[in-house]
Amino acid sequence: MNAQHDQDRRRVPRGADTAPDADQGANAAVAPWQAQDRADDDRGARVIRLDTARQSAGGADPDGERQEGPGPLERRIAAGLAFLRRRLTGEYEVDEFGFDPELNAAVLLPLARAMYRHWFRVELCGLEHVPRQGPALVVANHSGTLPVDGLMLTVAIHDHVGRDLRLLGADLIYQVPLLGHLSRKAGHTLACPADAARLLDKGELVGVFPEGFKGVGKPFAERYRLQRFGRGGFVETALRTGVPIIPCAIVGAEEIYPKIADLRPLARLLGLPYFPITPTWPLLGPAGLVPLPSKWMIQFGEPMRLEEHGPDAADDPMTVFNITDHVRENVQQMVYDTLLRRGPAFF
């Protein structure tokens, strides 16, 4: 019965306050779809009726017995109306960063999830390395001309770890209308030491792409070669707050918009870091914005603990440089390994 409970819980859409789940940790290495399917297969015949009536909204009632209560469709519509009502009356909570968990789980993530499942067919590895609770800093490689990799990483962690990844974004994002406040509502914030330390102090899982624009805007010819890892600010923050660094390799994002040229004068005119030319953009107009359907793999590595250095090491630039290089080499090696395992880019 206990196992049944755990499986049920996995099906419930996650809110902000998902309890960390030990059982999930054990199952985490299984590919996500298999875990879902297995949960369905294991379902005992005797308890199926009650569960489907309550959980799988929209599914037909198998026996047609429960006529006295409202049916699943009605419940679903009522839940939708309640959601709509909360949104229209502003009766929801946001945190001090502007994170709106309800909007994120109900509107923003489902949009990205469709792409995650059906377009990029993301496969995950090493999920057991991502802590189910407590602060940690996920450090990943950045690529793809547009930062779609951040979006996919957020979906992966939300759906398979049950936590909200709080990304640190470039200041350009917060200058652009719409993008800035959507990014805050999705839980992300500006990449600055104060915000990173504040999130980690609150026990959040924080994600960072230390390569920044150099990584995301590198030409296709340099794919999967990591750029400089910024100035090591993320290592200083990790040292000061004493949190582990989780290295992460994202493979597949390099092929979504292969940047074959860069119109520098136009980029300067528009105030952008680069203006990419891809095989389809701007040749096909808006259709060029559709990413190529590459096959993605995301690999999490073993947590790198920095306790041995102590918080004072953050003021020692040599230690910071060394750790930064070490993390970078680690991620680069993981990228090469995962690239080999993935094989061809589009199948």
């Binding site: 209560g69 409202p70 419940r75 519509i77 109306l81 309640a82």
Partner: peptide
């Protein structure tokens, strides 16, 4: 405070869950 049309949403929701 909140305007009138919300009352309609509430009644609709209540009708669905009561049945």
């Amino acid at each position: 405070g909140h305007p009138g049309p919300l009352g309609l949403l509430d009644r609709l929701g209540a009708a669905l869950t009561r049945r």
